[in-house]
Design a protein around this nucleic acid. Structure first.
Lengths: 212, 212
DNA sequence: CCTTTTATTGTCCCGCCGGTCAATTCTTGA
DNA sequence: TCAAGAATTGACCGGCGGGACAATAAAAGG
């Protein structure tokens, strides 16, 4: 087809040059390999094989191994972000915003052991890779800010920060549990856990709405 | 010195054959390397160098790399365990037992980024190493049991389990935070976070001890 | 003192892995 | 149709890492 038609199509389908498609395939392949092999066992050949390509092509699209896995982390981060913002868009009250963040972080197709394993491997490299650290930082800042946007309406001003920290830590911890002992915590359990935490902390220094 | 004297001495100083000493040195060296290099960059040569020995000696005391790092994890696990049981021995009330577990998990010389980095790297390999998984499992079971021994006196029977899960997850999550962004959470902050969590969850469905 | 373990080293090998490169095929656009 | 550029491959290289091993030094033990 002629150029302008293709261009129009590209704009409609959101900037998918062929190279962009390949890059996405490779990022995802990288992440998939990470799920099974961990950072120590993740090799360029395996990534290439998983994407049905040759090792050469991987280094054609990414300068080196580091860059590849940085992009893999960005991808995963984006997926998580989208899950939350989708829910966040439909939230009207502060409480709904809180629930959006919580539910989003434990979505069915996200809260899974393999995904957690890969994420864990990436986190383990954060101290040695500035880029990974930045991605991590952004992710955490976003989560915190999303939580605060809900908490400001519900918690005492001085406590919102602390509760937000607790919630993020609790969520991370539940993910970690899932990764370390798959099956030891269900999606519903995790969600209830975090929501109970929020409820308990909100009620804590409140004028006793208990037993009413 | 003659054999029986040496044996007596050994018993007094707790079974330190020369080989045991070397093995301990090497486990610790392995852990130290893990702190700096992560699982991907941790090599036998580096461990040997850090212990001031040759690579050969490492494989003389440990069948292979895997076994070495399994023992490194056991070592770290033991250190954490000892920190908690020491405090646990002095605890008289259920609440004191809870605090013992919490404080023990955030001890000054334990709650440090490098240690957390190493631990994180080991956790990331858990899904691919049965032995590591078992150590992890034991550690978690112990922590849970310690918590329950305190909670049974304080929480509703049906809730103790869930609170224990929450506490372990929260503790893990706070450690993770420390590893991902050193300085983003202080020891005191972490302790307060967990204790507030316990307090809030215990007060939650209680006959309103609030505002009294 | 001599023998038998044990500790320790350095060397060697093999396989793998990241990365480069030239060669080849495929697309694209005029 | 053709030229320019992109995509893709496979071969190759240097290096390193895990592990085996033989040789040597040191202890232990009778």
């Amino acid at each position: 087809m002629s150029t302008w038609i293709r261009n129009a199509w590209m704009e409609a389908v959101k900037l998918k040059r062929l190279s962009d498609i390949r890059r996405k395939e490779l990022r995802q392949a990288a992440f998939a390999v990470l799920e099974r092999e961990g950072i120590a066992g993740a090799t360029l050949e395996k990534v290439a094989a998983h994407a049905g390509a040759s090792k050469g092509i991987v280094l054609h699209y990414f300068r080196n191994k580091q860059e590849l896995f940085e992009h893999a982390m960005r991808e995963a981060n984006a997926v998580l972000r989208d899950a939350v913002v989708a829910r966040l868009r439909q939230a009207r009250t502060p409480m709904e915003r809180l629930d959006a963040v919580i539910d989003g972080n434990f979505e069915e197709h996200l809260f899974l052991p393999p995904l957690c394993h890969a994420w864990l491997s990436l986190c383990a490299e954060v101290p040695r890779d500035e880029k990974l650290a930045r991605i991590q930082k952004v992710l955490h800042a976003r989560m915190r800010s999303n939580l605060l946007s809900g908490l400001h309406g519900l918690a005492l001003p001085g406590e919102a920060d602390e509760i937000a920290l607790g919630v993020t830590a609790l969520i991370d911890g539940l993910w970690l549990r899932l990764g370390l002992e798959p099956g030891s915590v269900s999606r519903e359990q995790a969600i209830r856990q975090v929501k109970d935490f929020v409820a308990a902390r909100l009620a804590m220094h409140q004028p006793a709405t208990v037993g009413a």
